[in-house]
């Protein structure tokens, strides 16, 4: 097969998987653009920030950072805390991103929640190039997000219909992906640990501080479970 066909086929294979993200990101991106607009920023801000940061929740936080006093170190550490979950995505994708060549840089650059969950759970059809498939999933996701932010930033003040609750589409996506992963795996220790420990951590530490303790608890429990889990694996 010619290279161009291979790339085009991967693009066509990736599109359907990104349609749910299209709906979610376009909406959330528009919401972000409107939000920036309401804070008094021109459309250039949401467009450039969605392009370069490409981490949804952090872009909302960054808007507030821009309105507060100049404190770059604070900005850096806050970002590390909010985005610490990406460390786990990276560890999970070490293997999958192997052998993807130069595309690997962009795959890592665009490793947001949504790209991670699709690229981790979806296996590209056999005849499709895996690297290009994941590349286009990531690229399309970012395209939707930047498009949304641009639309929201430019036309922000004109939106009229009641969109309250539409943001739930992202929650629905993660619930569906969690269930898919659940149906695929034989043992649910890890899924249950992630769900349970995060929920407990959220109750104890609250919405803005729960991620780091949750990650540490997950890491701790999975490390303790390593021996018994590997024993079960060997026995099975």
């Amino acid at each position: 097969m010619k290279k161009r066909d291979q790339v085009w086929d991967a693009f066509l294979a990736a599109v359907p998987y990104t349609i749910p993200i299209f709906a979610g990101f376009l909406f959330l991106g528009i919401a972000y653009g409107i939000y920036m607009n309401s804070l008094g920023f021109s459309a250039v801000y949401p467009i450039l920030m969605s392009l370069f940061i490409f981490a949804g929740s952090m872009e909302f936080v960054a808007a507030n950072l821009l309105l507060a006093g100049f404190n770059p170190m604070n900005a850096l550490f806050l970002t590390l805390m909010v985005n610490a979950r990406h460390l786990f995505y990276g560890l999970s994708m070490l293997d999958r991103y192997k052998g993807t060549g130069k595309k690997k840089f962009y795959l890592i650059y665009g490793l947001c929640d949504e790209s991670f969950s699709i690229n981790y759970t979806v296996d590209a059809p056999k005849e499709i190039d895996k690297g290009w498939f994941m590349f286009f999933v990531t690229l399309l996701n970012q395209l939707y997000w930047v498009m949304g932010a641009a639309i929201g930033g430019v036309f922000g003040s004109l939106v009229q219909f009641n969109t309250e609750g539409l943001e739930f589409v992202m929650t629905a996506l993660f619930v569906v992906i969690f269930i898919e992963q659940w149906m695929k795996e034989k043992k649910h220790h890890s899924a249950l640990a992630g769900l349970g420990l995060s929920a407990v951590s959220l109750m104890i530490f609250g919405g803005s501080d729960f991620i780091i303790p949750a990650m540490m608890a997950i890491l701790g429990v999975l490390s303790v479970l390593r021996k018994p889990l590997e024993k079960m694996e060997a026995a099975a």
Binding site: R85, F88, Y89, L91, S92, M93, L94, D95, D113, F116, S117, Y120, T121, M170, T171, F174, V175, I177, F178, Q181, W182, E185, H188, H189, S190, A191, L192, A193, G194, L195, G196, L197, S198, A199, L202, G207, S208, F210, I211, A214, M215, I218, L219, L222, S223, L225, R226, L229, E230
Partner: peptide
Amino acid sequence: KYIQYLGKVLPSAVLGLLVIYCFKD
């Protein structure tokens, strides 16, 4: 080996974390 193990078991836990993350507010 330990990192390989984490790469195998973490994803399910992280997807669980993501679900809870949606309910943070």
